[in-house]
């Protein structure tokens, strides 16, 4: 009885294999032509992806090169943005400052709220609503940033305006952060709205990591008479610490690249200042969105250099986050 694979790839002779059981049967794994084609085809697809993505990096680099050569090291220290002026004078210092400040504000709000929400869903919420809360968070993560941005512009910022004005009036003079001539289009408000966008994605990552905390250890902590907080602080948080850091960094990567909140909210000002409640500021992403229309030859190259700088920062943060998450016990099990 001779059985043959559909394409004749594996041939075996069943009755003959029996008597010679002592010596191992020779196995041949030959690839058929169809298999070779399949491998080549799939590899070509993967190769295309690889080439495409690498090309993006290379084009960004070559596109940014003229601007970087013109400005040299001052690219990192100059505040103004006049690449098409005479002489061209531009740098990412103000843009990077705005990006980092708004992202820092966003993260200061996002991380505690995300950790609380993740704990609430996993440990406090009734079992019946746990699944729906999880999908609610995922749903929030799917809402476009444009919608958060216009909601912030028309709902949140007017809502907060009296509070911010009050804070400025109270603390003005002895708290440099709170000094402002006008509020509304500030880096703080932009950061606040970016926080609204970053909370869902951060929460969903942290929640997934914390859910993998070993159940028997949690139950052991409770069985020893620990309170719920005792269980969380002694088992879940130490277990998920790196997951919390990694999830927050992924959220930070999102916050740094966010364009629309900053474009719609910020009053444009290329400057570095500690008064985060005051109108004015710029981020790299919003700078690109605003400046690209009028950019000439060098201007476009300068924008690409700014984009490249932003990409390098977000890339480094993502890489770091991946390392942290993978090194954690939770990440290894995932």
């Amino acid at each position: 009885m001779r059985t043959t694979g559909p394409e004749g790839s594996v041939t075996s002779d069943v009755p003959e294999a029996g008597p010679r059981a002592e010596e191992p049967r020779k196995l041949e794994a030959r690839l058929t032509d169809a298999d070779r084609f399949y491998r080549a085809f799939v590899a070509a697809g993967a190769g295309t992806t690889l080439v495409l993505i690498t090309l993006i990096g290379l084009f960004l680099l070559t596109g940014a090169w003229p601007a970087l050569k013109t400005s040299g090291f001052s690219f990192l220290t100059t505040l103004t943005w006049a690449p098409d002026g005479e002489p061209p004078k531009f740098g990412v210092a103000a843009m990077m400052f705005g990006t980092f400040v708004s992202a820092a504000v966003a993260m200061l709000i996002t991380v505690p709220i995300a950790v609380c929400t993740a704990l609430f869903i996993n440990e406090y919420a009734p079992r019946a609503v746990r699944r729906s809360l999880t999908s609610l968070v995922d749903l929030m993560a799917a809402i476009p940033s444009l919608i958060f941005a216009i909601w912030g512009l028309f709902f949140l910022v007017p809502l907060l305006a009296p509070i911010e004005d009050w804070a400025v009036a109270q603390f003005h003079g002895w708290l440099p952060l709170a000094e402002a001539s006008a509020t509304g289009g500030s880096l703080f408000n932009a950061g606040l709205i970016i926080a609204c966008m970053a909370i869902p994605i951060t929460t969903s990552i942290i929640r997934e990591v914390l859910a993998q905390a070993p159940r028997h250890e949690c139950e052991g902590a409770l069985a020893l008479g620990g309170t719920r907080w005792g269980m969380i602080s002694s088992v879940i948080l130490p277990f998920g610490r790196s997951g919390i850091v990694g999830g927050s960094m992924l959220g930070l990567g999102r916050a740094l690249g966010e364009t629309l909140a900053a474009t719609l909210i910020l009053s444009i000002a290329f400057e570095i200042k500690p008064r985060i409640l005051e109108n004015g500021g710029i981020t790299v992403a919003s700078g690109i969105a605003i400046e690209f229309r009028d950019a000439q030859e060098l201007g476009l190259s300068a924008l690409m250099a700014a984009g490249l700088a932003l990409f390098l920062v977000t890339f480094a943060i993502n890489l770091l986050a991946a390392l942290v998450v993978n090194r954690s016990p939770a990440g290894a099990r995932a």
Binding site: R39, A43, A46, G47, T49, L50, I53, T54, I56, G57, F59, L60, G63, G253, L256, G257, E258, T259, A285, I288, A289, F292, L300, L303, M304, G307, L308, L310, F311, T314, F315, I317, N318, L319, A322
Partner: peptide, 28 residues
């Protein structure tokens, strides 16, 4: 295959690409 490591690396890197930079890239 042998491409798996570099492909995974660049794909991970690309999730960090800010959307505005993707637009700028195509634009330029």
């Amino acid at each position: 295959g042998p491409l798996a490591r570099p492909v995974r690396l660049v794909a991970d890197a690309m999730t960090a690409l800010p959307s505005i930079v993707a637009g700028l890239f195509i634009f330029s």
